[in-house]
């Protein structure tokens, strides 16, 4: 018959438990990367039907904010040469909110803006008519670096997000983290971008210049 062992130690020895857990912890620390699905979103234009010629869009020169980047990473912004992107976001903001010659709907839009944004309307006849017409165009070369392209796109997005955020009384960081999931946040999102479309045109890069 099996005898009951005399009780030398009542408990399981838990002293090495910490070591085992440490080992596992270090394994996971080393083998894993914290997933970061962050980045700049973009929506590509729909594919072109070869049978249908591309629509001929007549747009006034003044309603397009042109940014050209060549293969040496030099910029041509509104026909002015420059070699860095400093101040580009402010210029785009001023361009979008220019209200050069708004129609009735856009006068209403102007009146609905908070005073801080109204103050930015330059009313320059050479700049955009109203936000619904304004388009920011980015054209690169095949030799342009991806890093600079993203930097410019980032600044354009920044200008728009700052406008949206200011309309709903948030700062740009708070506005960007709003999600579609909750109704209250969705309403803020919609109110921010209502009637001011984020019109960023990204042209096909041209082939001149080396890669």
């Amino acid at each position: 018959m099996a005898r009951k062992k005399n009780r030398m130690s009542q408990e399981v020895n838990a002293g090495s438990m910490a070591d085992i857990a440490f080992l596992l912890l270090i394994f996971f620390l080393v083998t894993t990367t914290i997933a970061s699905d962050k980045g700049i979103t973009n929506i590509l234009p729909p594919k072109q039907d070869p049978n249908v010629p591309p629509p001929d869009i007549q747009k006034n020169e003044r309603n397009i904010f042109k940014i050209l980047i060549n293969s040496n990473d030099q910029l041509l912004v509104e026909d002015d040469f420059r070699d860095n992107t400093e101040g580009l976001d402010e210029e785009i903001k001023a361009f979008v909110l220019n209200f050069g010659s708004p129609d009735q709907a856009n006068i209403d839009l102007y009146n609905s803006l908070p005073p801080s944004l109204k103050a930015q309307a330059g009313r320059d006849p050479e700049s955009s008519d109203h936000p619904n017409e304004a388009v920011v165009s980015i054209k690169t070369n095949r030799g342009t670096s991806y890093e600079l392209y993203l930097e410019v796109l980032d600044l354009v997005k920044k200008a728009y997000f700052e406008i949206y955020a200011e309309r709903v009384g948030l700062n740009a960081d708070e506005y960007r983290t709003l999600s579609n999931r909750s109704a209250a946040e969705k309403e803020l999102l919609e109110r921010g971008k209502e009637n001011i479309p984020m019109a960023i045109s990204i042209a096909e890069p041209d082939k001149s210049g080396g890669e």
């Binding site: 979103t41 690169t140 342009t144 991806y146």
Partner: peptide, 23 residues
Amino acid sequence: KMGPIADIQFELREADARKILYA
């Protein structure tokens, strides 16, 4: 450089996967 990126974007347009994210 932008060359390969543009080629990829062109193919993605053809494939009708138009939502992209520049990580």
